[in-house]
Design a protein around this nucleic acid. Structure first.
Lengths: 293, 293
DNA sequence: AGGCTTATCTGACTAAAGTCAGAGAATGGA
DNA sequence: TCCATTCTCTGACTTTAGTCAGATAAGCCT
């Protein structure tokens, strides 16, 4: 790790907590405890289930309950039971609560604008662009990879998106039944592995490894959500699978891909995969790759 | 103000308070109340006067006093009276306090590194560059201009730096006595104005306006601290002086400059000043400019 | 139906953060 | 010299934020 890079990040942290943090703390609470203000904001125009609220803000259930009572007493929030599940309650903003939240929103806008107004238009654009870049790359850094059983709803969600994307992009469409298999069993340890990339509690990518004969493994099901592309997640998923492959004792990895998936091919080249002669009869493949581990 | 820009700033604020803020809050306190941790950090290796501490952290005097007692009880801080003024006390770190602070420092480094480690080298560089840009432009936005009497120590400080810079940059050196005047009286309202640019309580630039005959004013003493260049401060100082000039009823502004001050000439061109024939005998000038208001 | 789990709430508690009023010593200016 | 001001400290207080241990009701599983 480069020392000067670390120093720059520290300067940034300091500058930003001073400017953004300090202001958000005082300016945006309107004489209300921060906890209540956060809740009010998080409830949002459509209301939210209490448990979701708790989870998002990572607060104790008793504490949330008390905060909601306080907001109710101020006439800003209503809680109701109509959720299908009789245990679950929803917090919804009243008319007054919506108005109050709109005020917060306006203040938030004002605060944001206060960063921009003193700058000339060229510098404004530069600031906004740099902020977008920082935000994106911080997001990239916050991505976490976790092994997932292929039967879970999360895994299903990823695979559905993956198949959907193939169907849209392949010139011939895509029918999983005609394609080379990667069954649940083949993606379950120790026969194989299915990994999901998470960002803020949402799955944003996946990948699978088939251990096969124990010598030559196969990489399958590499998918990244459109909203999370360009963050280097595919690289990390692939690295995760390769590490797993090495630990399992595999000597080489293989994969095949369609010619329309150009960014995937670029990734495989970058990661040291060599294009080789077709090693199977996958009807949707145009390129076959291999890498020694 | 562009709406999408405001939206981006808000997204940034959100992302950053989540990542930086949340972590700083929990990770950097080492089981110690945040207040104490902040004090420990702010005291620094050389100690600090208690009143300065109070002002920087904007805390109640009683509260600071109590926090210091707590840190003393832990053997981390000593307060002493040797300050010249018998009322003022200094807080100084003990050996143990210095060690504790070093630990915080290391944690801070670690926290910073945690943003970088998940990224590949290319993205690391991009993140660091974008952070530097954001930091710089936030700083730029935080600059404030205030009228200052030319006799004050702050004004003296700026003028000394200004003269020092001229002496270094002009091929012939610089002797204020031989140059066209801008006396204290000429920079004091209503005969003239002296403005200082402030950043975090430090003067980082200045500029002056001589009202002269009430028709044609003169811009003088434009200086920006090296550490604050590239932030558009000179532009803002010049705009401030022009606004003042208009309010005073001036019809045009003049200024002269040395050929070595190329960035100044670029600024004047950008701001609509036209190069004109010499209108005075300033020995250090090579270019004369004028602008109708 | 019975037992386990989940979602929410209440009561009882603690620690941190901060405010306010004034006391006491030192200093500065008239 | 005297009076107002400055700086620090202490005591007494409030509010916020948060934790923990149940109680209660509803749903899930067999």
């Amino acid at each position: 790790m480069d020392e000067s890079q670390v120093a720059q990040v520290r300067r940034f942290n300091r500058a930003v907590t001073q400017h953004v943090g300090a202001l958000e703390g005082s300016y945006l609470r309107r004489g209300r405890p921060l906890g209540q203000a956060r809740l009010l904001h998080e409830i949002g125009p459509d209301g939210i289930e209490v448990r979701a609220l708790r989870e998002r803000l990572r607060l104790d259930s008793g504490y949330v309950s008390r905060l909601l009572r306080a907001l109710e007493a101020q006439g800003l929030v209503r809680t109701e039971n109509r959720t299908g599940d009789g245990r679950v309650r929803r917090a919804v903003l009243t008319e007054k609560g919506r108005a109050e939240r709109a005020t917060y929103d306006a203040l938030s806008d004002e605060l944001a604008a206060s960063f921009l107004t003193p700058l000339d238009p060229a510098r404004r654009e530069r600031l906004v662009a740099a902020m977008a870049e920082v935000e994106r790359l911080l997001k990239a850094g916050a991505v976490e990879l976790r092994l997932e059983a292929p039967q879970t709803p999360t895994a299903r969600f990823c695979l559905d998106r993956y198949f959907g994307e193939l169907a849209r992009r392949f010139e011939t469409g895509f029918d999983p039944g005609r394609s080379n298999s990667a069954t649940d069993a083949e993606m379950t340890p120790p026969a194989g592995y299915f990994v999901v990339a998470w960002l803020d509690g949402e799955p944003v990518g996946c990948g699978a490894l088939k251990v096969g004969d124990g010598i030559t493994g196969e990489v399958k099901r590499m998918w990244i959500a459109p909203s999370a592309r360009g963050l280097g997640i595919a690289s990390r998923v692939l690295e995760w699978l390769e590490t797993q492959a090495r630990e399992t004792g595999l000597r080489r990895l293989r994969l095949e891909t369609n010619r329309t998936l150009t960014e995937a091919q670029a990734l495989y080249h970058r990661k040291g995969y060599q294009e080789v002669a077709p090693f199977n009869a996958e009807p949707y493949a145009h390129h076959w790759f291999e890498k020694r581990l």
